[in-house]
Nucleic acid binder design. Structure first.
Length: 271
DNA sequence: AACAAGTCCAACCGCAACGAC
DNA sequence: AGTCGTTGCGGTTGGACTTGT
């Protein structure tokens, strides 16, 4: 018995999302929420499969996402959690607010993994690599921590990583540094993703069109969180999110967008 | 300036888990 | 208890971008 594909392969667009598609998706989700992802693209007028919509939303369009490199603290936490949880990226992501599993996974594979390897640490086990003679630099580092128990190793990871980061002179961008330039709400609304609570009209420029879009286009998608927070719970309620967030009575101390699947409201709530 | 190699990340794929019936 | 539909997760890939020659 074969699995039914998540969507009809025929007539379904793939590849990078366009600004127009992002607008449609965000506009639809903000005003209606999602009942089930399969029907979202149809209702939103998108030639995408539901899975693709969900991924786009959770990994990029969700308003509570942080953008930019992981901070030093976040990186340490990822290493720590990875030592405990292994490749359970979603579990790790759950401990880093505003970060997605995909983002953490990518960061691990492109940055952290290499750092650990250079340090002579097996990224999979977080133990020193049992390898043939390492190059001098690694040798030296290995001498510093020979045959450490895992706990000790974890403790060292952070310290050595920090040194490593300094060594490379890698700029560690803090969240507050990567958010959008502070704009008055109106300006923010006209320049970047905006959500009118009344009409739920949304404008977004897709960074997928160009990875440097946020830097050069003048339409900073990293600004997403700010306008979304600015329009606040009232806007969310006006836009049709009302009553969908248990315990969302006051303020946004509990992020309403975070972890909404399985957080206590069922599909009917979204209809 | 042009090209090649390397890096990074958004998006896709396929499987597993879960819930409804 | 078994089947089906949906969502979530982790691995992988394609291509844009950056860096080096």
């Amino acid at each position: 018995m074969g699995r039914q594909p998540c969507c009809d392969k025929v007539g379904v667009k793939k590849g990078p999302w366009t600004a127009e598609e992002d607008q449609k998706l965000v506009g639809f989700l903000v005003s209606h929420g999602h009942c089930c992802w399969r029907v979202v693209p149809k209702l939103a007028g998108l030639l995408r499969c539901g899975k693709s919509c969900r991924l786009r939303w959770t990994n990029y369009l969700r308003p509570d996402l942080k953008r930019g490199l992981l901070s030093d603290e976040e990186e340490k936490l990822v290493i720590d959690l990875h030592a405990q949880l292994g490749n359970r990226w979603s579990k790790i992501a759950a401990r880093l607010p505003g970060r997605t599993d995909n983002e953490i996974k990518n960061h691990w594979n492109t940055h952290i993994r290499k750092k650990l390897l250079r340090m002579g640490i097996d990224p999979a086990t977080h133990l020193p690599l049992q390898e043939p003679p390492a190059p001098p630099v690694q040798e030296q580092e290995q001498q510093e921590a020979p045959q450490l128990q895992e706990q000790q190793q974890q403790q060292n990871d952070g310290e050595v990583l920090q040194e490593d980061a300094e060594e490379e002179d890698l700029p560690m961008i803090q969240p507050h540094e990567i958010t959008a330039p502070t704009l008055p709400p109106q300006a923010a609304a006209s320049n970047c993703g905006s959500v009118s609570s009344a009409s739920a009209s949304v404008s977004v420029v897709s960074p997928s069109c160009s990875s440097s879009a946020s830097a050069v286009s003048g339409v900073d998608v990293t600004a997403w969180p700010e306008p979304m927070y600015l329009f606040g719970m009232d806007g969310i309620l006006d836009a049709g999110w009302g009553g969908h967030f248990p315990g969302s009575g006051g303020g946004l101390s509990v992020d309403p967008f975070d972890q909404y699947p399985g957080s206590g409201f069922d599909q009917d709530d979204w209809m």
